[in-house]
Amino acid sequence: MISIEHLTFDYGNFLALDDINVQIPRGSITALVGPNGAGKSTLMRCLAALSRPTSGRVLINDIDTVANPHGCHAITGFLADNFGLYEALTVQQSLTYFARAHGVEYTNRVAEVIEMVNLADKTNAPIKSLSRGMRQRVGIAQAIIHGPEFVILDEPASGLDPEARIQLASLFKQLNRGGITLIVSSHILAELDQYANNLIVLKNGRIVETGFELSRVQNAEYQHYVICVDNISLLKTIDFAGLCSLSGIDGNNATVVLPAGEKIKPVLDLLREKGVDVLEFYKSDSNIQDAYLKTIKNA
């Protein structure tokens, strides 16, 4: 578990983090969101034991990041938002270097991680020849080469095309299933929907929302569906009579909320009955975007 206690980071002319208190449970995928300048990157650097806080402390599995930074580095992987790679090295050389630098038995581990990030066909390719999506995966491979328990990723999907983002989301789920706790910051909230189950919202260096509220609300009590229809104006006039409630409309897409355990079929039947053609529908695992906007608005 990561425990953040009264964490303050002062740049002198700018208070980036202001008395942050939060716990990040082991096994979660935590989305760290907030407007630009909210303090996300500073918080991530403190979690990665790369920046020394002005006051307060961060404990990673009870190891203090200031007192024992190397102990934290051994169980933490970090990918900065604007990271660099050793362009002239091959994928294998680069990962071998980091494995050896971490004191890891590298022969099998490098092959295993290359397989994990789906770069087996690029093992001997120079990094400078890789696409942006592949470079991102090399970055993640470097961050997990030593088998960390926690991986911190700052804006990992920025600049990636939709296909690469989907692959990345799938990789995060895979890593999480393997027992890694992930902390991911992103501006692309819709993408966090696909994998995050915990949310921390930062604004002006303070936490305005935290914990498992989001997942508890959505997974335990409600479920969200996005329904694409041909006539959204007509849909707005329909009385769903307790079947579901309409939580948002975006173009021809309507988001409806059903109590947990209820089927979507009666809702679709009602729409058809009222003359609304459903073009497609899918279940939204969570709705971080709604939660985020609501939280930021109320903060």
Binding site: A49, L50, G77, F78, A80, F83, G84, L85, F98
Partner: peptide, 13 residues
């Protein structure tokens, strides 16, 4: 300048 220093600082070297 090439943004690789943070990764090196986090290694076990």
């Amino acid at each position: 300048n090439q943004k690789t220093w943070d990764r090196q600082r986090m290694t076990g070297l």
